[in-house]
């Protein structure tokens, strides 16, 4: 067993890489939500005067990266790797955003869990001395996701309580071994969990077992309890998925469930009529780098776990009647 591993699935970072700087951008709807003040930039409209929403998504990601680098006075040439992912086919937003940077680019995909996948991989590179600085980023846009996974925007659809609303936004972070920012202490990468759920309109319920499995493994590996964390931020389970996760946890007698908060279920208010809540790769990213990082920086919380979940389905697979494979990645952060 490697020296930096604990238990079966968890990596412990002895060098504790840090999120040195970060930037979050959200669309106008998220900018009216209860966490609006936590984000660094709220767009006045969701087009940014671009011709297509795909171009807007790409631009948001590029803006987030520029600002992240600026904030840390870092030139892109001082960064060794750029890791990014998004929801679109062939992760075009990430690939296209990497065009302008002359550094190695690694594209990742984990649906709404993309951010944690990138964060964990970046930390591994720093821990292993493969890089001095790693840039990570992700973005999503309501319109691009809607047209790829569902229907035209203006089509007559009645949404239900289990439907998610894709967050329009982008987030980027610069990781290094410096002295500023929250420390990454552990990463638990999840395995695929598929409990046979097929309803693409209820991804929360499908993802809850994945979140449960990764959380359980993380706690076993690290020997911790839920109470050892001030906050556990799950990513995009939504109201329905959070409910199912809590049912699964209480079924195995876990306590401290009030410390679990869901990013997707929080980002919008009930009046915004967004069904189960937000989703999309930007959702957990902006909630972590906005809300959670602010809390860690102001020492309101000391130790948190981000548990980002992803439903790895496509429009084709759900039409073909396949069930939804899901994944969850956990990253522990300390102030």
């Amino acid at each position: 067993m490697g020296n930096n591993r604990v238990g079966i699935q968890t990596i412990a970072f002895s060098r504790q890489p840090r999120i040195a700087s970060s930037y979050t951008i959200v669309g106008p709807l998220e900018g009216k939500g209860p966490y609006a003040l936590e984000f660094q930039e709220i767009l006045p409209d969701d087009t940014l005067q671009q011709k297509t929403p795909e171009k807007t998504e790409r631009l948001m990601l590029e803006m987030a990266i520029e600002k992240t680098l600026q904030q840390n006075d870092t030139k892109i040439s001082d960064v060794q790797f750029y890791i990014a992912g998004d929801l679109l086919n062939q992760i075009i937003s990430s690939c296209f955003s990497a065009r302008t940077y002359p550094i190695p680019f690694l594209g990742v995909y984990g649906a709404c869990s993309t951010f944690c996948e990138a964060l964990g991989l970046g930390a591994i590179m720093l821990q292993g001395d493969f890089a001095d600085q790693v840039l990570i980023g992700t973005a999503s846009h309501y319109q691009t996701a809607e047209r790829q996974f569902r229907y035209p925007i203006e089509m007559n659809i009645q949404h239900h309580g289990t439907n998610h609303h894709t967050v329009t936004g982008a987030a980027a972070a610069l990781l290094n071994l410096g002295t500023e920012g929250p420390r990454i202490t552990h990463a638990t990468f999840g395995s695929i969990v598929d409990w046979g759920l097929k309803d693409a309109n209820d991804m929360g319920s499908a993802m809850a077992p994945a979140a449960f499995s990764t959380l359980k493994q993380h706690l076993i590996d690290t020997g911790r309890k839920i109470e050892d964390y001030d906050l556990i931020l799950t990513g995009d389970l939504g109201k329905q998925g959070s409910k199912m996760l809590k049912i699964l946890l209480s079924h195995e007698n876990y306590t401290g469930l009030e410390r679990i908060q869901d990013g997707g279920a929080s980002i919008y208010s009930d009046q915004q009529k967004t069904g189960a809540g937000g989703s999309g790769s930007a959702c957990v990213a902006v909630m972590t780098l906005g809300y959670l990082k602010n809390k860690l920086n102001s020492s309101k919380v000391k130790r948190v776990l981000i548990l980002a979940t992803g439903a790895l389905l496509s429009a084709t697979s759900s039409l073909q009647g396949d069930s939804i494979p899901c994944i969850a990645h956990g990253i522990a952060l300390e102030a």
Partner: peptide, 29 residues
């Protein structure tokens, strides 16, 4: 029309206006 459908459901989908909506929505999209 999409707002109307959030409230009306099938009430907005079944009339011929709903048919027109799907065509226009797809055309714009």
């Amino acid at each position: 029309y999409d707002e109307l459908a959030e409230v009306g459901g099938a009430g907005a989908a079944i009339p011929i206006t709903g048919f027109a909506n799907t065509v226009t929505a797809a055309a714009m999209e």
